[in-house]
C-alpha cells in the first residue's frame, strides 16, 4: 500500500493523472496477487502432500509435485478409519442442529420483532449479553446435569439445546432485523382478514425471510460440521464421533503420515468449501450483518 502511495507522489510533476492511476492499479494488483498466493498456498500444499508417497514427503519443497499422484492415499484415509460412520454422525448432528436452530430462532425473532409482551426489551438485551458468556461457565453444570439425566454418552446434549435457542442469539438478532423490515401493514391486513399470528408467521413472514433463513442454516451447518469443542466434551462413545473428532484421532493414529492426514483433512473440509463457493452471497451477507448493525 505504502509503495502504491509514495511512488506516484514523488514523480508527481512528471506523471499525468491517468498514468498515476495506472501505476497505482498495477502495484495494487501485484500486492493482491502475492497475498492471494500466500493465502492459497497452504491449500495447494495440502493437496500435493496428500498425493505424495511417504518418501517424497522427506524431500519437501525440492519435490514439489509427486512423481505419480497417489490417489490411493484418499482410499487409505477413508478405509483405515470408520470414515463413513463419522460422516453419518456429523450429518445427524448437523441435521438436528439446523432444524432446531431454524425452529427456535425464527419463533423467538418474530416475538422480538413483531409482538409486544412484558419484558421483551429486557430479554432482548439479555439475549445479546448471552453472546458474551464464555461457554465454560455454562458447560460444567450442564455436564453434571446431563450426567444425572443419563444424557452423557448420547448425542442429546448436542441436539436438544438447539431446539431451545442454544447458540442462536446471533441468528435471532439477524432474523429480528429481517422481520422488522417487513411492513406492519401486511400483518394488519392479515389480522383484519382473521389470520392469527401463527398463520401470519408461517405463511407471510417465513417466505419473506427465505434468504435470511438460508444464511442461518448455512452458518449453523458450517459451525456444527467444524465444531470440535462440543463433540469432544459430550461424545464419549466413539461410535458417535464426528468427522472433526475422527480427524483428530487420525493424527494420533498416523503420527508422521502427513500424506494421509492431509488426504483425510481435505475430505473433511471439502463440503464446507464447496458450500461456501455455492452460497457465498448468503454467507457474506450474514457475517457482515453482525459487524455493522451490531
Amino acid at each position: 500500500m505504502q509503495t502504491a502511495e509514495c511512488k506516484p507522489k514523488m514523480k508527481e510533476s512528471r506523471l499525468t493523472r491517468p498514468q498515476k492511476r495506472l501505476v497505482k492499479t498495477i502495484v495494487l494488483q501485484i500486492v493482491l496477487v502475492s497475498l492471494s498466493f500466500v493465502f492459497l498456498f497452504p491449500f495447494l500444499w495440502m493437496l500435493v502432500t496428500a498425493l505424495k508417497t511417504p518418501q517424497e514427503l522427506l524431500h519437501g519443497i525440492e519435490k514439489f509435485f509427486p512423481d505419480s499422484p497417489q490417489w490411493g492415499n484418499f482410499v487409505t484415509a477413508v478405509t483405515t478409519v470408520p470414515f463413513l460412520m463419522y460422516l453419518k454422525n456429523s450429518l445427524i448432528l448437523v441435521f438436528f442442529a439446523v432444524t432446531g436452530t431454524l425452529f427456535s430462532a425464527t419463533l423467538t425473532a418474530y416475538a422480538f420483532a413483531k409482538l409486544r409482551w412484558p419484558g421483551r426489551d429486557i430479554f432482548f438485551v439479555v439475549m445479546l449479553a448471552t453472546m458474551m458468556i464464555p461457554p465454560q461457565a455454562i458447560l460444567i453444570p450442564s455436564y453434571i446435569l446431563y450426567a444425572h439425566i443419563g444424557w452423557l454418552g448420547t448425542r442429546l446434549p448436542l441436539i436438544v439445546p438447539y431446539f431451545f435457542g442454544g447458540g442462536a442469539a446471533f441468528f435471532i438478532f439477524l432474523l429480528r432485523q429481517f422481520f422488522k423490515g417487513i411492513p406492519n401493514e401486511l400483518m394488519e391486513s392479515a389480522i383484519v382478514d382473521g389470520a392469527g399470528h401463527l398463520k401470519i408467521f408461517i405463511y407471510l413472514m417465513l417466505p419473506l425471510t427465505k434468504p435470511a433463513l438460508i444464511t442461518v442454516a448455512l452458518i449453523t451447518f458450517m459451525f456444527v460440521w467444524n465444531d470440535y469443542f462440543g463433540p469432544l466434551i459430550f461424545l464419549s462413545n466413539p461410535d458417535h464421533w464426528t468427522l472433526a473428532l475422527g480427524l483428530r484421532a487420525f493424527e494420533t493414529q498416523f503420527t508422521g503420515r502427513y500424506e494421509l492426514m492431509m488426504a483425510a483433512a481435505i475430505l473433511v473440509m471439502s463440503p464446507t468449501i464447496v458450500l461456501f463457493f455455492v452460497a457465498q452471497k448468503h454467507f457474506i451477507e450474514g457475517i457482515t450483518f453482525t459487524g455493522i448493525k451490531g
Binding site: L40, N226, L245, E251, Y258, M261, M262, M269, T272
Partner: peptide, 19 residues
C-alpha cells in the same frame, strides 16, 4: 480467497499447520 481459510474446520487447520 482471503475469506476462504475461515470455512476450514479447526482440526483440518491444525493438521495442516502441524505439517
Amino acid at each position: 480467497i482471503f475469506y476462504l481459510p475461515n470455512v476450514v474446520s479447526i482440526v483440518a487447520m491444525g493438521l495442516l499447520w502441524l505439517w
